[in-house]
Design a protein around this nucleic acid. Sequence first.
RNA 1: CGGGGUGUAGCGCAGCCUGGUUAGCGCGCUUGACUGGGGGUCAAGAGGUCGGAAGUUCGAAUCUUCUCACCCCGACCA
Length: 476
Amino acid sequence: MSSKFTTREADFPRWYQEVVAAGDLAENAPVRGCMVIKPHGYALWENIRDRLDQMFKETGHVNAYFPLFIPKSFIDKEADHVEGFAPEVAVVTHAGGKQLEEPLVVRPTSETIIGHMYAKWIQSHRDLPVLINQWANVVRWEMRPRLFLRTTEFLWQEGHTAHATAEEAEAETLQMLEVYARLAEDYLAIPVRKGIKSRMETFPGALRTYCIEGLMQDGKALQMGTSHNLGQNFAKAFDIQFQDTDGQRKHVFTTSWGVSTRLVGAVIMAHGDDRGIVLPPRVAPVQAVLVPIFRKPEERDAVLAAARRAIDGLKAAGVRAKLDDREQLKPGPKFFEWEKKGVPVRLEMGPRDLKDNQVVMVRRDQEGKNAVSLDVLTETVLKTLEDVQSSLFERALERRDAMTNKAASMGEFEEILDGTGGFVEALTDGTDESEKAVKDNTKATIRIVLEDGDVGGECMVTGKPATRRALFARAY
RNA sequence: CGGGGUGUAGCGCAGCCUGGUUAGCGCGCUUGACUGGGGGUCAAGAGGUCGGAAGUUCGAAUCUUCUCACCCCGACCA
């Protein structure tokens, strides 16, 4: 019954690695920083992807695909963009057995190539808005890779839209932030803080960056999605213009927004326990697993027949249910395996249960076992899945709130960070210098700016009158 | 790029300092039997260019030199 994992409390990063491996989600590839996403991990990503894709379609977006290779000169066209991405870009200099005329960048993100295409596609206000998303892999050379959280190659989606007015672009940016927040909270059961990034944390080339920030169990923040209002920066760099109703040629306003396979890491770090991964039912590839128990052949036949009926009932009700009828494994090892994989509900069915017309049900998020009559199995499982979903969210919310504090001075600020960690709300004078000083001294960064302007009080760094209220945290 | 470390079976390691028969251990794997309501037991097996190269030696996983790879700690990021 005891766990073999390093506990979260003892060493969170190590716990994370062990749990990812034990849950059979992914492993490191021969190339440093790259990962192989295994079937169970990929199924998890597919569920996130499918739900998001549906949400994008519901908000009027369509999918397209842009190429992996981008002429290096494209990246150079937007000054902030080059500077921001230069250190992590992979460049192809040779191909076809010779040196290339112009090096090709392996996309770290696709604003530039998409901007180039939009310049061709957009002529008139009648062509707007353009609402395109793409599912793709991108490469950003990483020095400190961590499975799912930070990998050199990762899977993501990037939405790229173009609009006639600044207002429309801003509305789009905020709308997609909302979509991300809903995905995180309703689907991944992770409460998030929504907000705007400081200038220092803004996407290279963007006017404004909004984001959702989750808090992990170790008190560190995780950026779970970003939505950028790019203003006319890329429109000007790539000359994306349209003729408006007034006859004038104008630059469009663009946005971009993305979430990645990092979300899989978020789910693990937000909900996992010392026995392994715990998956919210809505994303779980397997929501309920049934482990049959028997000794003699006649027991086997009876149990398996009843088990198949139960599974069929669950599947008919839309539950992603699985019968684990592998005969080479005893029930015990199966229990541990599914537990490590995070399956929300486990059912055990043996001869004793058959006699009583019941199964034994175990919730992944709780201790203990309960008997459930076969007559009400399907509705009980459905209800339990909903319960697990909401209690995971509630638990994460309580943890988050308990780890959100205010600091009035640097002393208090550091005390909180070194104690419980988590989000710390504090006042600063809003300068890059103060923000940098906090980062250098405490490793905490501004996750979101809560308010700029007349906030009262004084800057915790300089003591000058404060002009900004922000949420800080140490982050992944 | 600066500092520290590791390469021996699929994985994790011992052996090296102090050279000496067929290079071991745990887990995993294969076959079989007994087992089966929370990680079972027994038996029999398979699996190795000891990272690579050169050298010292009668003899090298072990000593020397070179080389390659990877990992950890310090500057960025969805």
